[in-house]
Design a protein around this nucleic acid. Structure first.
Length: 275
DNA sequence: CTTCCTCCCTGTTCGC
DNA sequence: TGCGAACAGGGAGGAA
C-alpha cells in the first residue's frame, strides 16, 4: 500500500535514473490504467519528451517533462513503477512499458489494476479531479499544530477516517494512520472534536515522526511494495501495531486488536488507546 | 456543505 | 484436500 513514505521512496530511487532521459517508445498493454488522454494521444504526446525531474504530492508521483507536460502516477494499492534493463523479464500484470533513450525501461505494473496514469499540460494540473483538492503536505512547514487544531475543531468525523481523507492531509494511508494514532495514544474511533490540546500536540508530532521514519527506512513492505529498483522497504520491522493483531503492544504488552473503523481495518491497543 | 458506504480488482486466506 | 467466500484497501462517486 504505497503511502507517502513509499511514494517518496519510489521518487528518490527513480529520479537519479530517469532525470535527463527521453521517452523513445511506449507500449500500453492495459489501456484503462491511463485516465487521460486516450492511448493514441498519450503515445503521441510522450514520445521524445525529456524527464526533467520527479516530484511527489501526497501519494501522487509527478514526472515533470519537457514542453510543460506532467506525467502523474498514482500507485493506489499494488501499483509498481520500476526502472529495468529492457532484457529483464516482464512481470505479470505489467500494464505500460516506457522505453527510454538509454535503452532501459520504466515499467508500470499493478496486480489489482487500481493504479492510474495521467498526462496533462502543467496548467491543467489545477483542474485535475482528485489532485486539485489535496490537503496539506504533512512534512511541509505549512502543516502546523495550529492548522491541525483548527481543522479538528471544524470537522465532525472520527479521527481515523479523517486522517485518511486526502483533502484534509495528503499522503496518510492505513498503515501510517494506525501507527500515528498508537504513538499519540488516541483511539481510532474518537470524534475529532473531543481531542484535548495535549492529544492534538501528540498526534501532530506522531504523524511527522512515523512518516519521517518510514522514509528513512525506505517504506513499508507488508506485501507488495517495492521501490523504483525493485527493492523492498524496511519499515515493516518497526511497525508497532499495523498488521500485528494479537501481538503484544510495545508499550503495555497487552494484545493488539483489529477492528473495522470507517470500513478499514484498524490496529490499535485498547488499553493505551481508550475511547 | 458534510460524512459514510459501495465498488472496482486479483491474490491470498479462511471456513466448511 | 478442495472449493467457494471473505478479505485486503485508495479513492471515485453516490447516498444520506
Amino acid at each position: 500500500m504505497p503511502e507517502l513514505p513509499e511514494v517518496e521512496t519510489v521518487r528518490r530511487t527513480l529520479e537519479p535514473k530517469l532525470a535527463g532521459l527521453k521517452f523513445t517508445a511506449v507500449q500500453i498493454l492495459m489501456p484503462k490504467v491511463i485516465k487521460t488522454p486516450d492511448p493514441d494521444q498519450f503515445k503521441e504526446i510522450i514520445l521524445d519528451k525529456k524527464i526533467i525531474k520527479i516530484n511527489r504530492r501526497g501519494k501522487y508521483l509527478l514526472l515533470h517533462l519537457s514542453e510543460k507536460y506532467t506525467l502523474l502516477v498514482h500507485l493506489r494499492m499494488t501499483g509498481r513503477l520500476t526502472y529495468s534493463e529492457k532484457e529483464a523479464p516482464v512481470a505479470k500484470h505489467t500494464h505500460v512499458i516506457f522505453t527510454l533513450s538509454n535503452g532501459c525501461q520504466l515499467r508500470f505494473c499493478d496486480t489489482r489494476q487500481f493504479g492510474r496514469l495521467w498526462m496533462v499540460p502543467v496548467p491543467s494540473l489545477e483542474e485535475l479531479a482528485g489532485f486539485k483538492d489535496l490537503g496539506v503536505e504533512p512534512l511541509d512547514d505549512r502543516f502546523t499544530r495550529d492548522y491541525l487544531k483548527k481543522e479538528l475543531r471544524r470537522r465532525h468525523a472520527r479521527i481515523k477516517p479523517l486522517l485518511l481523507d486526502q483533502t484534509f492531509i495528503a499522503g496518510l494511508g492505513n498503515i501510517y494512520t494506525d501507527e500515528a494514532l498508537h504513538r499519540a495514544r488516541i483511539n481510532p474511533e474518537r470524534l475529532c472534536t473531543t481531542l484535548t490540546p495535549r492529544e492534538i500536540a501528540h498526534l501532530y508530532h506522531a504523524i511527522q515522526e512515523v512518516l519521517q521514519e518510514g522514509i528513512e527506512n525506505r517504506g513499508t513492505t507488508v506485501r507488495d511494495f517495492i521501490d523504483g529498483n525493485g527493492r523492498a522497504g524496511g519499515y515493516q520491522e518497526l511497525l508497532r501495531v499495523y498488521s500485528r493483531e494479537g501481538e503484544p503492544c510495545p508499550h503495555c504488552n497487552r494484545p493488539i486488536v483489529r477492528k473495522k473503523v470507517g470500513g478499514r481495518s484498524s490496529y490499535y491497543c485498547p488499553f493505551c488507546q481508550k475511547i
